[in-house]
Design a protein around this nucleic acid. Structure first.
Length: 404
RNA sequence: GGAGGGGUACCCAAGCGGCCAAAGGGGCCGGGCUGUAAACCCGGUGGCUCAGCCUUCGGGGGUUCGAAUCCUCCCCCCUCCA
């Protein structure tokens, strides 16, 4: 890659970044890196419990890719040790303890997905049990002595929980310290992550200083809101768009985000620059639907292909604009004498229980060949060429006569 | 260690002997409408062999014709004092 000036390098790094603390130190590090020819070490913590990456992760991975392209070293930390503690950031729910095998398995899936965004071969991968697992009680106390309780309680999550009488466990208090120790162990120059990690990263700086190391730079990227438009994208809230999801699913999920989020997705996921975003804003006012469709198209293209995007768009229009059946749907065998509508819906997995299937039917949510079927006693005998069952807005199946 | 408060369905939160499968909100699901799986409006939301039955209100035991509601033991959480 052509040599950029420090200013240009900094501009690349700063794109779509919320905080860079402190910028002067980064400039100094960049200068020194050029002089010594040693790339900066950029730490990124990987969660070994959730191998499904989504667009929210992508925002940060894309940033890492930018930095990698500038010639710096990305260091992935697999938190196999801290995974047993559970990061207190956000919701606090006890996470299951993972076995070594599970961690390795998750890590494998994780990197398969990360590989879609940046070059794993050029990155360094470390497991934090390597150093945390070797710590003695003495070491832990020494680490714990680098921070105070009141400073720990400055953290937003903690102070809120403390005020609201929600328990905070000691091990959760220790978490940021261990994460900080990781930075020391790998000699991080920069630590990157979402803005919710700011506190942990700051603790990392303190730990590094306490152990006589130059503190890392903190680089945070915005948290992308999920399809609900309110909360940050996360698997547990089920408002996420996974980067490995099939094209049709991905396209549909993008179409389901609130209109207000469209510009933000163009910015954070597609990396549009200011002038492009102005155009998008204008287009959004004039024709929101088509603009959102363009977003969906571009996102599918990014993670799959131009061809997949085209097909996903056509399929979406076919189902939701023209109200037609999809070109491809699961087949369900019905005996010649027919089968009860509720049983069919339940067996297809279109309802979680038979009661739910009954509700769907009686509320008018089931159609066979375009005709509503509201009687839960109805017995369906498919036409000779097959019939189309539609449940809700987007669940379809082809019913065919077959002797079982 | 002492004193108080609390644990209710996917989440938050009412109920405090029968009318409670349990108010209300969120979420989710369905319908209508539409520019989309947007927004908005309406309805539904434990399960089943469904006008009936079975399981649910931290866990066990008990009182009662009858308990989420009363008693008792246990587990867990919070606050204040020490």
């Amino acid at each position: 890659m052509a040599k950029l000036s420090i200013e240009e390098e900094l501009r690349v790094i700063k794109k779509n970044v919320v905080d860079l603390i402190p910028e002067e130190e980064l400039i100094a590090k960049l200068k020194r890196s050029r002089e010594t020819g040693k790339p900066l070490r950029v730490k990124y913590g990987a969660d070994p419990t959730r191998p499904d990456l989504h667009l929210g992760h992508y925002v940060c991975l894309k940033k890492l890719k930018d930095i990698q392209d500038l010639g710096h070293k990305i260091v992935f930390i697999i938190g196999d040790f801290t995974g047993m503690i559970g990061d207190p950031s956000g919701k606090s729910k006890a996470r299951p303890r993972l076995s070594k095998e599970e961690v390795m398995e998750n890590a494998k899936t994780y990197f398969e997905q990360v590989g879609k965004v940046l070059d794993i071969e050029k990155a360094e991968v470390r497991y934090n049990s390597e150093w945390l697992g070797r710590m003695t009680a003495h070491d832990v106390i020494e680490l714990a002595a680098t921070y105070t309780v009141s400073r720990m309680l400055e953290r937003d999550d903690f102070s809120k929980r403390f005020k609201n009488g929600i328990p905070i466990y000691i091990h959760e208090i220790l978490y940021p310290l261990f994460q900080g120790y990781d930075s020391y162990a790998i000699e991080a120059d920069i630590e990157a992550g979402g803005t919710d990690q700011t506190f942990n990263f700051l603790v990392g700086r303190e730990v590094q200083k306490a152990f006589g190391q130059e503190p890392q730079i903190i680089l945070t990227v915005p948290l992308l809101e999920g399809t609900d438009g309110k909360n940050k994208m996360s698997k547990s809230l089920d408002n996420y768009i996974g980067i490995t999801e099939p094209p049709n699913e991905m396209y549909g999920k993008v179409m389901s985000i609130p209109d207000e989020l469209v510009v933000r997705y163009f910015k954070l996921v597609l990396y549009y620059d200011e002038s492009q975003l102005k155009e998008v804003e204008k287009a959004m006012r004039e024709n929101p639907r088509d603009t959102k469709a363009r977003l969906a198209y571009e996102i599918v293209r990014l993670f799959h292909s131009e061809d997949a995007a085209r097909r996903a768009a056509a399929e979406f229009d076919r189902i939701f604009r023209e109200r037609q059946a999809p070109s491809d749907m699961p087949e369900f065998a019905v005996p010649p004498e027919g089968k009860n509508i509720v049983d069919i819906i339940y067996e297809l997995g279109f309802a979680r229980s038979k009661s739910e299937a009954r509700r769907i039917v009686s509320q008018g949510g089931a159609k066979v060949d375009g005709e509503k079927v509201t009687n839960i006693e109805a017995v369906i005998v498919p036409k000779e060429e097959g019939s189309v069952l539609k449940v809700g807005k987007r669940k379809f199946a082809r019913l065919v006569v077959k002797n079982s």
